[in-house]
Design a protein around this nucleic acid. Structure first.
Length: 879
RNA sequence: GGGCGGGUAGCUCAGCGGGAGAGCAUCGGCCUUACAAGCCGAGGGUCACAGGUUCAAACCCUGUUCCGCCUACCA
């Protein structure tokens, strides 16, 4: 029935369909009996296909959601997608270009219809991929930022903020993408240092004499210069302030002004001022009442004010201008210089600072409350080192440019009056101007920044501005799980909007995970060829193995480094559990019924009590790790317990027990531990755990998805047996070590002689000889009588509680054994010296915690014991 | 320029005041009736460098250095 090799191919989709059919992911907003747990998904772009970042992000969310769902919470994971204004528009435009047309050929309305059609066809691809991953979202509640309801929320927020003066329209230098033909927010610009030049250009006086030399990295903007600025305290230029110089080429006279922001040390200490194409210069122009001349148009082409350069691309102009300046003797110097260049985060085109009228959100007042909310602990940021970054940004927040000159998005609900020039802002079509009642009004053609609508996500998805049961039950959400790369883009804005419109923070915790990189820490990129595709990984190794790999590497605050090899490694683990399942199930037999077995009737032996105690530790450890977002610790705990405790030891111990008198108890323990492992691991490994759980006797309920999450059980905690069992395990390990290192043939059964002072140690060993025989392949174990001399030609090992002798006449290589023991003795001796030094230190004895001192004494005693025996054994070998 | 994170076994990383750990890789031995995608055993580290605090430092502090990343209106 169960193959020895686990094959996820058919099993994974089978159970996902099952879960959907049973509506196990659906949250009931009316259910008020249980505490609720809610997460809103970071909505992927409709243009997106699942990449590693999504895979990690959604795996972590799914782990939390599945854990809480099993643990009894009324759990909502709200899914959805983002319309992703510029990104989507670019994709569809490219698509149109392939068909030989363009958005301008189609016109606005037809283009938007085209995007919707595109979205119908491709927009939910990523949803299917999330399902493949196992994401247990409440798909009945799937949202889209351009849905009717969410669009209503956007309008309501815009109008409210406008009426409060927190949204305004203004002339400003914005980051302009000449390719997208749109303004961008500060965050949408990527900064990079590039190799450029610093040009020194002489602006002569009217009479042709020296004038001033200015330094610039962008000579083409000089065509729009309307002043030269110097520091008022710069003696070099003291006499020239207020005088005029002549702009080369265009021969326009411009004034020398004094402004304290000019750095005397930089370049020549004289700055050319281009108000229309530089933010600093623009602000200076406001202070000094300078003329503003636009010389570069919205496509990055020089316009009619650029004189002979009109019609040239800005970079071609720079080139030509340099030549002309040189020929005419104005170019004084040109030196290599690292220039910070801003690029559009969507299309990588070099940004042009551009003067235009845009809509802004006055972020400062909103930010203040968002700062306070974190300060007061209403929202926790995890890991906490991000708090500082959050404060830093929030404290220095600038007005947020929210208008975009594209077509795909939420159109700004503002109408301009052709009659009086007034603006009417309204949630509904106003019909007439609210100032002069003229009907000659037209709606703003701009749309809103994508992040404006995503900023409302935690409450707009729950039906706001309606007063819905969802909001009542699930807002604020429990936690937001996202990458730190969108802390400002998204998290900060949700904080501001949530507090403003809901009067409460949008989430109690923010868990910021790291980015996914390749196994050497390189960013994944197509050109490097190091992309790991989640879909291929899942195809090859299964979603379970893939999820486990991501989780195991998701250490807090660290990059997640992943490679195919690593995913494959965890596939072995999935298979390991599978085989443990096979073993347990095949041994339970057809009549096994856990309900027919009462706890009090169990005859638990030392090994049983030990594994149950270890299970309790694993449960506590996993819960603790998940409760504090230490995902890798949870994975590690489950991995280690399952493989190296349960499989490596207990299953092996169980084999002889299954033939003994307490076989029924052993079967129960095997069943119990396996069931707990499956449930413990289910949040990380949803599919395979379900597959076994469903055929496991006594697994109650429709699915493991809604089975109770394991809890520690005080009735199954046995610290004494836990310690006792360790004596046996050490004994077995000691014998195995001798066998391994002495190259003893595996078939050869050994006779072992033990010396143990403590009667309880002897008792434990004598009482459980079967384990030792079986696991260490021993024929007979005997105890050395008091005063008995050690047998010669023996291999030796020592544990904390006993000495182990293995007579190996004819088999043992004396020289090798000597070498082995000498090496061990050396290690022990070095360790012992550290303890002795410590314990002879007065300061340590006086100041250290008494518990620590006692601990050190015990370690010392143990080491002394070991060393003494090792040395004696060595001496014996030499004799 | 400002900020943050990191430098621990060959590789990738845990550990973050009291015995240097894991996984993978390596080496040796095993088809032991759940699993060779497995089992048993072994080797391997002046915890970047230099100071300091402490009875005690991989861990805390200071400085240096090398790598990432974020941020910025130095023309």
């Amino acid at each position: 029935m169960m193959d020895k090799e686990y094959d996820p191919k058919d099993i994974e989709p089978k159970w996902y369909d099952f879960w959907l059919n049973k509506k196990l992911f659906h949250a009931d907003a009316q259910d008020s009996g249980r505490p609720s747990f809610s997460i809103v998904i970071p909505p992927p772009n409709i243009t997106g296909v699942l990449h590693m970042g999504h895979a990690l992000n959604n795996t972590l969310q799914d782990i939390l959601v599945r854990y809480k769902r099993m643990d009894g919470y009324n759990t909502l994971w709200m899914p959805g997608t983002d319309h992703a204004g510029i990104a989507t528009q670019n994709v569809v435009e490219r698509h149109l270009a392939e068909k030989g047309t363009s958005r301008h050929a189609l016109g606005r309305e037809e283009f938007i219809a085209e995007v919707w059609r595109w979205r119908e066809k491709h927009g939910n691809i990523i949803i299917g991929q999330l399902k493949r991953l196992g994401a247990s979202c409440d798909w009945e509640r799937l949202r889209f930022t351009m849905d009717e309801g969410l669009s209503q929320a956007v309008k309501k927020v815009f109008v409210t903020l406008y009426n409060e003066g927190l949204i305004f329209r203004s002339d400003y230098i914005v980051n302009w993408c000449p390719r997208c033909h749109s303004a961008l927010s500060d965050l949408e610009v990527e900064h990079e240092d590039e190799n450029g030049f610093l040009w020194h250009i002489r602006y002569p006086k009217a009479d042709g004499t020296d004038g001033v030399v200015v330094a610039t990295t962008r000579p083409e903007t000089m065509l729009g210069d309307t002043a030269v600025a110097v520091n008022p305290e710069d003696e070099r230029y003291a006499g020239m302030i207020g005088q005029e110089v002549i702009l080369p080429i265009l021969k326009r006279p411009i004034k020398i002004i004094a402004d304290s922001v000019v750095d005397k040390e930089f370049g020549t200490g004289a700055v050319k001022i281009t108000p229309a194409h530089d933010l600093n210069d623009y602000e200076m122009s406001l202070r000094h009442g300078l003329e503003v001349i636009v010389v570069i148009d919205e496509s990055g082409v020089m316009n009619q004010h650029a004189g002979p350069y009109a019609g040239m691309d800005r970079f071609a102009c720079r080139h030509q201008l340099e030549q002309d300046l040189q020929e005419q003797g104005y170019l004084v110097d040109k030196t290599p210089y690292k220039v910070p260049v801003g690029k559009c985060y969507r299309c990588k085109t070099v940004i042009e600072p551009y003067l235009s009228k845009q809509w802004f959100v006055a972020a400062k007042p909103l930010a203040e409350k968002a700062i306070a909310a974190v300060k007061e602990g209403d929202t926790r940021i995890i890991p906490p080192q991000w708090e500082k970054t959050y404060y830093e940004w929030m404290n220095n927040i600038r007005d947020w440019c929210i208008s975009r000159q594209i077509w795909w998005g939420h159109r700004i609900p503002a109408w301009f009056c052709e009659n009086c020039g007034g603006v009417t802002v309204s949630e509904t079509e106003p019909g007439v101007c609210c100032h002069c009642k003229s009907d000659k009004i037209r709606q703003d053609t701009d749309v809103l920044d994508t992040w404006f609508s995503s900023g409302l996500w935690p409450f707009s998805t729950m039906g706001w501005p309606e007063d819905t049961p969802e909001l009542k039950r699930f807002y604020p959400t429990s936690v937001l799980v996202t990458g730190f790369d969108i802390l400002f883009f998204w998290v900060a804005r949700m904080m501001m909007m949530g507090i403003k419109f809901m009067g409460d923070v949008p989430f109690k915790d923010v868990y910021l995970h790291a980015l996914v990189r390749d196994e050497h820490g390189q960013k994944m990129s197509k050109s490097k060829g190091n992309i790991v595709d989640p879909l291929i990984e899942m195809e090859r190794f299964g979603a379970d193995a893939f999820r486990f790999a991501l989780t195991a590497f998701a250490a807090m605050g660290r990059d997640v480094r992943i490679s195919e090899k690593r995913v494959q490694g965890y596939r072995f683990f999935i298979n390991k559990i599978w085989n443990a399942g096979r073993f347990v199930l095949s041994n339970l037999g057809p009549d096994f019924d856990p309900d027919a077995i009462a706890r009090k009737d169990l005859t638990l032996g030392i090994a049983d009590k030990w594994i149950l105690t270890e299970l309790g530790r694993a449960i506590a450890g996993t819960r603790d790790a998940l409760d504090s977002y230490r995902f890798n610790d949870a994975a590690e705990t489950i991995y280690h317990f399952t493989w190296h405790t349960f499989c490596d030891w207990y299953i092996e111990l169980a084999k002889p027990m299954l033939e003994g008198a307490s076989a029924a108890t052993t079967r129960w323990v095997l069943w119990y531990v396996l069931k707990n492992i499956l449930e413990l691991a289910h949040p990380i490994i949803p599919f395979m755990t379900e597959e076994i759980w469903q055929i496991l006797p006594g697994a109650k309920g429709v699915s493991i998805v809604v089975a109770p999450y394991p809890k520690t059980d005080d009735g199954l905690n046995f610290p004494d047996e836990d310690r006792g069992m360790n004596i046996l395990l050490e004994l077995i390990s000691g014998i195995r070590s001798i066998r391994g290192e002495s190259n003893i043939p595996p078939g050869l059964e050994l006779n072992v002689i033990l010396k143990a002072e403590a009667p309880e140690v002897r008792q434990i060993v004598q009482g459980h000889m079967d384990y030792v025989r079986r696991l260490a392949r021993v024929k007979d174990v005997s105890f050395m009588a008091e005063g008995q001399t050690r047998p010669p030609k023996t291999a030796f090992a020592v544990t904390a509680d006993m000495e182990i002798y293995v007579p190996l006449e004819g088999v043992i290589d004396i020289a090798k054994e000597q070498e082995r023991l000498a090496k061990q003795a050396k290690t022990v001796k070095a360790d012992l010296e550290v303890r002795l030094k410590k314990l002879s230190n007065k300061g340590f004895l006086e100041k250290a915690d008494p518990e620590v001192v006692e601990e050190q004494r015990q370690i010392k005693a143990e080491l002394e014991f070991k060393l003494e025996r090792l040395e004696k054994a060595l001496a014996l070998l030499e004799a």
